[in-house]
Amino acid sequence: MSAGARFVVRRLLRGLVTMWFAVTVTFFLLRLLPGDPALAVADPTMTEELRADLLRDYGLDRPLAVQYWEYLTQLAQGNLGVSFRQNQPVLDILLERLPWTLLLAGSALVVTVVLGIPLGVLAATRARGAVDRLIQIGGITGQSLFVPSVGVFLLYVFGVQLGILPIGGAMDDDVYGLAAYGSIAAHLVLPCLSLALVQLGSYVLTLRSTLIDALGEDYCTLARAKGLPNRRVVWRHALRNALLPTTTLVGLQLGFLVGGAVLTESIYAYPGVGRAIFEAVGQLDFPVLQGAFLMLAFAVIVANLLTDLAYGLLDPRVRTS
Protein backbone atom coordinates (compact mmCIF):
# COMPACT_ATOMS: atom_id res chain seq x y z
CA MET A 1 0.00 0.00 0.00
CA SER A 2 1.32 3.46 -0.85
CA ALA A 3 2.03 5.98 1.87
CA GLY A 4 -0.93 8.06 0.72
CA ALA A 5 -3.42 5.18 0.91
CA ARG A 6 -2.08 4.17 4.32
CA PHE A 7 -2.59 7.74 5.50
CA VAL A 8 -6.21 7.80 4.31
CA VAL A 9 -6.97 4.42 5.90
CA ARG A 10 -5.37 5.45 9.18
CA ARG A 11 -7.40 8.66 9.35
CA LEU A 12 -10.63 6.81 8.49
CA LEU A 13 -9.94 4.29 11.25
CA ARG A 14 -9.27 7.10 13.67
CA GLY A 15 -12.60 8.70 12.82
CA LEU A 16 -14.38 5.38 13.32
CA VAL A 17 -12.72 4.82 16.70
CA THR A 18 -13.69 8.33 17.81
CA MET A 19 -17.32 7.80 16.79
CA TRP A 20 -17.41 4.42 18.50
CA PHE A 21 -16.00 6.02 21.64
CA ALA A 22 -18.66 8.77 21.58
CA VAL A 23 -21.43 6.19 21.15
CA THR A 24 -20.09 3.91 23.89
CA VAL A 25 -19.62 6.74 26.37
CA THR A 26 -23.18 7.88 25.69
CA PHE A 27 -24.61 4.39 26.12
CA PHE A 28 -22.87 3.71 29.42
CA LEU A 29 -23.51 7.18 30.82
CA LEU A 30 -27.20 6.74 30.12
CA ARG A 31 -27.33 3.30 31.70
CA LEU A 32 -25.05 3.88 34.67
CA LEU A 33 -26.47 7.19 35.82
CA PRO A 34 -28.56 7.06 38.95
CA GLY A 35 -32.14 7.26 37.87
CA ASP A 36 -34.14 4.68 36.05
CA PRO A 37 -34.49 5.29 32.32
CA ALA A 38 -38.13 4.27 32.68
CA LEU A 39 -38.66 7.16 35.06
CA ALA A 40 -37.57 9.47 32.32
CA VAL A 41 -40.13 8.04 29.91
CA ALA A 42 -43.15 7.89 32.15
CA ASP A 43 -44.68 9.71 35.05
CA PRO A 44 -43.91 8.44 38.56
CA THR A 45 -47.53 7.59 39.38
CA MET A 46 -47.71 4.55 37.08
CA THR A 47 -48.16 1.08 38.54
CA GLU A 48 -45.34 -1.41 38.99
CA GLU A 49 -46.86 -3.64 36.28
CA LEU A 50 -47.07 -0.86 33.72
CA ARG A 51 -43.48 0.03 34.45
CA ALA A 52 -42.31 -3.52 33.88
CA ASP A 53 -44.20 -3.53 30.57
CA LEU A 54 -42.55 -0.29 29.60
CA LEU A 55 -39.11 -1.60 30.50
CA ARG A 56 -39.75 -4.67 28.35
CA ASP A 57 -41.02 -2.55 25.44
CA TYR A 58 -37.84 -0.53 25.49
CA GLY A 59 -35.73 -3.67 25.94
CA LEU A 60 -34.39 -2.39 29.24
CA ASP A 61 -34.89 -5.73 31.06
CA ARG A 62 -32.29 -7.52 28.96
CA PRO A 63 -28.59 -7.95 29.83
CA LEU A 64 -26.42 -4.87 29.36
CA ALA A 65 -24.30 -6.46 26.63
CA VAL A 66 -27.40 -7.31 24.59
CA GLN A 67 -28.74 -3.81 25.04
CA TYR A 68 -25.37 -2.39 23.95
CA TRP A 69 -25.31 -4.47 20.78
CA GLU A 70 -28.91 -3.53 20.03
CA TYR A 71 -28.01 0.14 20.57
CA LEU A 72 -25.06 -0.08 18.16
CA THR A 73 -27.06 -1.77 15.41
CA GLN A 74 -29.93 0.70 15.75
CA LEU A 75 -27.54 3.65 15.51
CA ALA A 76 -25.78 2.13 12.52
CA GLN A 77 -29.16 2.17 10.78
CA GLY A 78 -29.63 5.82 11.70
CA ASN A 79 -32.23 5.14 14.37
CA LEU A 80 -31.82 7.75 17.12
CA GLY A 81 -35.10 6.92 18.85
CA VAL A 82 -38.31 8.88 19.12
CA SER A 83 -38.70 12.29 20.75
CA PHE A 84 -40.65 12.17 24.01
CA ARG A 85 -42.50 15.39 23.32
CA GLN A 86 -42.90 15.62 19.58
CA ASN A 87 -43.63 11.96 18.82
CA GLN A 88 -41.38 12.13 15.79
CA PRO A 89 -38.14 10.29 15.01
CA VAL A 90 -35.22 12.21 16.52
CA LEU A 91 -33.21 11.82 13.32
CA ASP A 92 -35.90 13.63 11.28
CA ILE A 93 -36.13 16.48 13.77
CA LEU A 94 -32.36 16.95 13.85
CA LEU A 95 -31.71 16.54 10.11
CA GLU A 96 -34.11 19.42 9.55
CA ARG A 97 -32.02 21.52 11.95
CA LEU A 98 -28.52 20.45 10.97
CA PRO A 99 -28.08 22.63 7.84
CA TRP A 100 -28.59 25.80 9.91
CA THR A 101 -25.94 24.75 12.43
CA LEU A 102 -23.51 23.87 9.64
CA LEU A 103 -24.19 27.23 7.99
CA LEU A 104 -23.63 29.10 11.27
CA ALA A 105 -20.50 27.20 12.32
CA GLY A 106 -19.04 27.20 8.81
CA SER A 107 -19.53 30.91 8.23
CA ALA A 108 -18.12 31.69 11.70
CA LEU A 109 -15.04 29.65 10.82
CA VAL A 110 -14.59 31.54 7.54
CA VAL A 111 -14.96 34.92 9.28
CA THR A 112 -12.47 33.84 11.96
CA VAL A 113 -9.86 32.94 9.35
CA VAL A 114 -10.49 36.01 7.19
CA LEU A 115 -10.12 38.36 10.17
CA GLY A 116 -7.54 36.24 11.95
CA ILE A 117 -4.85 36.01 9.26
CA PRO A 118 -4.29 39.78 8.83
CA LEU A 119 -4.38 40.35 12.59
CA GLY A 120 -1.92 37.54 13.23
CA VAL A 121 0.43 38.79 10.51
CA LEU A 122 0.17 42.34 11.87
CA ALA A 123 1.10 41.20 15.38
CA ALA A 124 3.91 38.89 14.30
CA THR A 125 5.59 41.42 12.00
CA ARG A 126 5.54 44.01 14.78
CA ALA A 127 6.45 41.58 17.55
CA ARG A 128 6.89 43.23 20.97
CA GLY A 129 5.66 46.59 19.60
CA ALA A 130 2.60 48.51 20.75
CA VAL A 131 0.31 47.07 18.05
CA ASP A 132 1.44 43.55 18.99
CA ARG A 133 0.74 44.19 22.70
CA LEU A 134 -2.72 45.49 21.84
CA ILE A 135 -3.52 42.47 19.67
CA GLN A 136 -2.24 40.11 22.37
CA ILE A 137 -4.37 41.68 25.08
CA GLY A 138 -7.33 41.70 22.70
CA GLY A 139 -6.69 38.04 21.94
CA ILE A 140 -6.60 37.05 25.60
CA THR A 141 -9.77 39.03 26.29
CA GLY A 142 -11.42 37.47 23.24
CA GLN A 143 -10.56 33.99 24.49
CA SER A 144 -12.21 34.84 27.80
CA LEU A 145 -15.53 35.97 26.34
CA PHE A 146 -18.70 34.13 27.29
CA VAL A 147 -20.64 33.45 24.08
CA PRO A 148 -24.11 34.45 25.34
CA SER A 149 -22.69 37.72 26.69
CA VAL A 150 -21.29 38.63 23.28
CA GLY A 151 -24.54 37.55 21.65
CA VAL A 152 -26.70 39.68 23.93
CA PHE A 153 -24.38 42.67 23.50
CA LEU A 154 -24.47 42.55 19.69
CA LEU A 155 -28.21 41.88 19.73
CA TYR A 156 -28.80 44.88 21.99
CA VAL A 157 -26.64 47.26 19.97
CA PHE A 158 -27.42 46.25 16.38
CA GLY A 159 -30.83 44.62 16.76
CA VAL A 160 -32.57 46.67 19.45
CA GLN A 161 -30.88 50.09 19.60
CA LEU A 162 -29.84 50.62 15.99
CA GLY A 163 -32.50 48.29 14.61
CA ILE A 164 -30.51 47.53 11.47
CA LEU A 165 -30.38 43.73 11.83
CA PRO A 166 -33.02 41.13 12.74
CA ILE A 167 -32.94 39.98 16.39
CA GLY A 168 -33.78 36.31 15.95
CA GLY A 169 -34.71 33.40 13.71
CA ALA A 170 -32.99 32.35 10.51
CA MET A 171 -35.14 34.00 7.82
CA ASP A 172 -38.42 35.85 7.28
CA ASP A 173 -41.47 33.76 6.39
CA ASP A 174 -42.82 35.65 3.41
CA VAL A 175 -39.80 36.08 1.17
CA TYR A 176 -38.91 34.12 -1.95
CA GLY A 177 -36.11 33.87 -4.48
CA LEU A 178 -33.26 36.30 -4.15
CA ALA A 179 -34.90 38.11 -1.23
CA ALA A 180 -34.87 34.85 0.71
CA TYR A 181 -31.08 34.61 0.40
CA GLY A 182 -30.81 38.22 1.54
CA SER A 183 -33.00 37.48 4.52
CA ILE A 184 -30.93 34.42 5.44
CA ALA A 185 -27.73 36.47 5.20
CA ALA A 186 -29.15 39.30 7.31
CA HIS A 187 -30.26 36.86 10.00
CA LEU A 188 -26.86 35.16 9.93
CA VAL A 189 -24.73 38.28 10.54
CA LEU A 190 -25.11 38.65 14.32
CA PRO A 191 -24.97 34.96 15.33
CA CYS A 192 -22.00 34.41 13.03
CA LEU A 193 -20.18 37.47 14.36
CA SER A 194 -20.80 36.43 18.00
CA LEU A 195 -19.35 33.01 17.37
CA ALA A 196 -16.42 34.30 15.31
CA LEU A 197 -15.42 36.88 17.95
CA VAL A 198 -15.14 34.14 20.57
CA GLN A 199 -12.99 31.98 18.26
CA LEU A 200 -10.80 34.78 16.96
CA GLY A 201 -8.60 35.25 20.06
CA SER A 202 -6.97 31.84 20.15
CA TYR A 203 -6.64 31.78 16.35
CA VAL A 204 -4.76 35.08 16.25
CA LEU A 205 -2.54 34.21 19.23
CA THR A 206 -1.55 30.84 17.75
CA LEU A 207 -0.93 32.26 14.28
CA ARG A 208 1.16 35.04 15.84
CA SER A 209 3.48 32.70 17.74
CA THR A 210 3.90 30.15 14.90
CA LEU A 211 4.53 32.97 12.44
CA ILE A 212 7.17 34.54 14.70
CA ASP A 213 8.88 31.12 14.87
CA ALA A 214 8.68 30.71 11.09
CA LEU A 215 10.12 34.17 10.47
CA GLY A 216 13.16 33.17 12.52
CA GLU A 217 13.82 30.08 10.38
CA ASP A 218 16.78 29.82 8.02
CA TYR A 219 14.68 29.82 4.85
CA CYS A 220 13.27 33.23 5.78
CA THR A 221 16.74 34.59 6.49
CA LEU A 222 17.83 33.23 3.10
CA ALA A 223 14.83 34.77 1.36
CA ARG A 224 15.69 38.13 2.89
CA ALA A 225 19.37 37.69 2.00
CA LYS A 226 18.35 37.13 -1.59
CA GLY A 227 16.79 40.57 -1.43
CA LEU A 228 13.12 39.60 -1.51
CA PRO A 229 10.83 42.33 -0.20
CA ASN A 230 9.69 41.78 3.38
CA ARG A 231 6.05 41.57 2.34
CA ARG A 232 6.82 38.63 0.09
CA VAL A 233 8.88 36.84 2.74
CA VAL A 234 6.03 37.15 5.24
CA TRP A 235 3.07 36.28 3.01
CA ARG A 236 4.66 33.80 0.63
CA HIS A 237 7.28 32.03 2.71
CA ALA A 238 6.57 32.25 6.43
CA LEU A 239 2.76 32.40 6.44
CA ARG A 240 2.36 29.28 4.31
CA ASN A 241 4.28 27.24 6.84
CA ALA A 242 2.71 28.93 9.87
CA LEU A 243 -0.81 28.23 8.61
CA LEU A 244 -0.46 24.48 8.94
CA PRO A 245 -0.16 24.23 12.74
CA THR A 246 -2.69 27.04 13.06
CA THR A 247 -5.26 25.23 11.00
CA THR A 248 -4.60 22.04 12.95
CA LEU A 249 -5.64 24.04 15.99
CA VAL A 250 -8.88 24.99 14.23
CA GLY A 251 -9.55 21.29 13.77
CA LEU A 252 -8.88 20.62 17.44
CA GLN A 253 -11.23 23.42 18.42
CA LEU A 254 -14.17 22.27 16.32
CA GLY A 255 -15.75 20.71 19.41
CA PHE A 256 -15.48 24.05 21.18
CA LEU A 257 -16.94 25.83 18.14
CA VAL A 258 -19.95 23.51 18.21
CA GLY A 259 -20.46 24.22 21.92
CA GLY A 260 -20.39 27.94 21.11
CA ALA A 261 -22.92 27.38 18.33
CA VAL A 262 -25.31 25.73 20.81
CA LEU A 263 -25.19 28.82 23.05
CA THR A 264 -25.39 31.26 20.14
CA GLU A 265 -28.42 29.54 18.63
CA SER A 266 -30.12 29.66 22.04
CA ILE A 267 -29.67 33.44 22.21
CA TYR A 268 -30.84 34.20 18.67
CA ALA A 269 -33.59 31.56 18.45
CA TYR A 270 -31.63 30.29 15.44
CA PRO A 271 -33.35 27.05 14.34
CA GLY A 272 -30.28 24.76 14.39
CA VAL A 273 -29.39 21.68 16.41
CA GLY A 274 -28.26 23.92 19.31
CA ARG A 275 -31.66 25.51 19.59
CA ALA A 276 -33.18 22.01 19.54
CA ILE A 277 -30.92 21.19 22.50
CA PHE A 278 -32.03 24.35 24.31
CA GLU A 279 -35.70 23.45 23.80
CA ALA A 280 -35.13 19.81 24.73
CA VAL A 281 -33.48 20.85 28.03
CA GLY A 282 -36.62 22.76 28.98
CA GLN A 283 -38.85 19.78 28.08
CA LEU A 284 -36.50 17.08 29.47
CA ASP A 285 -36.60 15.42 26.05
CA PHE A 286 -33.66 13.03 26.56
CA PRO A 287 -33.74 11.24 23.18
CA VAL A 288 -33.32 14.59 21.43
CA LEU A 289 -30.42 15.55 23.74
CA GLN A 290 -28.70 12.26 23.13
CA GLY A 291 -29.30 12.37 19.38
CA ALA A 292 -28.09 15.95 19.18
CA PHE A 293 -24.81 15.10 20.88
CA LEU A 294 -24.23 12.09 18.61
CA MET A 295 -25.09 14.08 15.50
CA LEU A 296 -22.82 16.99 16.46
CA ALA A 297 -20.03 14.56 17.34
CA PHE A 298 -20.48 12.91 13.95
CA ALA A 299 -20.36 16.28 12.19
CA VAL A 300 -17.18 17.27 14.05
CA ILE A 301 -15.51 13.93 13.28
CA VAL A 302 -16.35 14.17 9.56
CA ALA A 303 -15.13 17.79 9.41
CA ASN A 304 -11.90 16.77 11.14
CA LEU A 305 -11.44 13.89 8.74
CA LEU A 306 -11.94 16.15 5.72
CA THR A 307 -9.47 18.78 6.97
CA ASP A 308 -6.93 16.06 7.76
CA LEU A 309 -7.25 14.59 4.28
CA ALA A 310 -7.00 18.05 2.70
CA TYR A 311 -3.75 18.66 4.58
CA GLY A 312 -2.41 15.36 3.41
CA LEU A 313 -2.90 16.58 -0.15
CA LEU A 314 -1.40 20.02 0.53
CA ASP A 315 1.52 19.09 2.74
CA PRO A 316 3.58 15.97 2.10
CA ARG A 317 5.04 16.12 5.63
CA VAL A 318 1.65 15.19 7.08
CA ARG A 319 1.42 12.05 4.96
CA THR A 320 4.70 10.60 6.10
CA SER A 321 4.68 11.57 9.77
Partner: peptide
Amino acid sequence: VSLSLPVLPLMIL
Protein backbone atom coordinates in the same frame (compact mmCIF):
# COMPACT_ATOMS: atom_id res chain seq x y z
CA VAL B 1 -10.53 11.07 21.25
CA SER B 2 -12.35 12.82 24.07
CA LEU B 3 -10.61 16.09 23.27
CA SER B 4 -11.96 16.02 19.73
CA LEU B 5 -15.60 15.59 20.74
CA PRO B 6 -18.06 18.45 21.32
CA VAL B 7 -18.08 18.48 25.11
CA LEU B 8 -20.84 20.96 25.86
CA PRO B 9 -23.68 18.90 24.28
CA LEU B 10 -22.42 15.87 26.23
CA MET B 11 -22.32 17.86 29.49
CA ILE B 12 -25.87 19.04 28.76
CA LEU B 13 -27.11 15.48 28.26
